[in-house]
Amino acid sequence: MSFKVKREYVERIISTCERVLRRGVDPFTIEVERYIKYLKDFLSQSSSTEDLILDLEALEALSRIVEFQGRWIRDKSFKLYFDPLIIEAKVKSLSLSDLAHVLCQALRPIASVKMISRVGFEEAAKYWLNLPPLKDRWGRLPHQIPATESMSIEDLIREKLALRGSFSEMVEEFWRRVKDSSKDGKIYYWDFIKSNSFEESVLKAYMLSYLVSYGYVGLDYDPKADDYVIIPYEEKIQVLGSNSIAVSISYDEWLRRVKDVGKS
């Protein structure tokens, strides 16, 4: 190996040490002992002042690494308190309220003031100044088209703008279907709303939410199945107070639950 190459290697030792110190990564990745032996060899062959300075710089960088290794061990031994299993056990054993109180002991929220920027303010002012009076804007609205067309009730039903029969009839019919379905045993929410089309599932979910809100059926959460059990009442009950249960039915969720696409 030429001496020039050796010099470059020493320079590389210095830059590696500096990078580790700056980024705070594991200092034990630096092979201090091997580098010191190398520097000893380099020093015995070097003759110029520049080489001596380079050797000194490398030695200083390595000594800082050794100092950082000490600090690293101290930090890591302190981190032993945060054993993942202990933390997980603690998280599981505490209630959400207790966890919230613990968080607030270590929480220092950001303080900031929101205000409109100058550009935003100028835009707003320009918009306001150019905004015509309300009566002028109303005047610009197109005149009502006098021509009218008639639609039959069948057309309205086909366009899904009207229902066949009254809404209360629909509710009664749906309540009967829920009761019939649950005769064979426990019925889960997602099993019940399962349909061939997404629209049908949404309609069922909508009707079910109505039945729950007005005391026709109840919902009981089953954590094992991660789903709600539908409990139809024989008679409509008086709903006291209000409890909301939000069940989101996105198309993706419907596909996953109903079509079982996610499992394939």
């Binding site: 993942p84 209630s95 309220s97 607030c104």
Partner: peptide, 29 residues
Amino acid sequence: PAKITDVLTAGWSIDELGALAACISIINS
């Protein structure tokens, strides 16, 4: 550290704070 009442007034719920505490401590550990 902030008082929990102040944090709740700022729009957080107890459940949300608890869940955040769980997330951060688990990730850190």
